[in-house]
């Protein structure tokens, strides 16, 4: 994972999540994206820049316009995050297993 511009950083911001939802449906120009937000064009453009740096968004030149499109391949990195999440819960449940084991033996002992 890159230092700061990782996928987590990218989707940590609600505006960036909204931008991703927009362009997931269809590629859009920066102007068309900015129209959906109250924030300034510059602010939206900064968000797009971060998404591009994270490679969640790809640029495509069509004639004179630049279109931004969603990069689903990059989003697949989230699948790889499933494993630590599963591991985290499995570790908790392994601890719970031991607690339950103790609770059971205590009960039988009484």
């Amino acid at each position: 994972m890159e230092a700061r511009r990782d996928i987590f950083h990218a989707i940590a911001d609600p505006t960036r999540r909204a931008i991703l939802s927009l362009i997931a449906l269809q590629a859009m120009t920066p102007n068309a994206i900015a129209e959906h937000f109250d924030s300034s064009r510059q602010a939206v453009s900064k968000h797009i820049q971060i998404l591009t740096e994270c490679r969640l968004v790809k640029q495509e030149q069509q004639g004179r316009e630049i279109y931004y499109q969603f990069n689903p391949e990059k989003m697949k990195e989230i699948d790889q995050w499933l494993e630590p999440f599963r591991q985290m819960w499995e570790d908790r449940f392994n601890r719970l297993d031991r607690v339950l084991h103790k609770m059971k033996s205590k009960k039988h002992g009484q």
Partner: peptide, 21 residues
């Protein structure tokens, strides 16, 4: 939202300190 769901999955990353576990 899907992003919230994915963020939840990513929380495992921060807690995935297996030596500690």
């Amino acid at each position: 939202s899907v992003a919230d769901r994915d963020g939840m999955l990513m929380s495992g990353m921060e807690s995935g300190m297996n030596e500690g576990f």
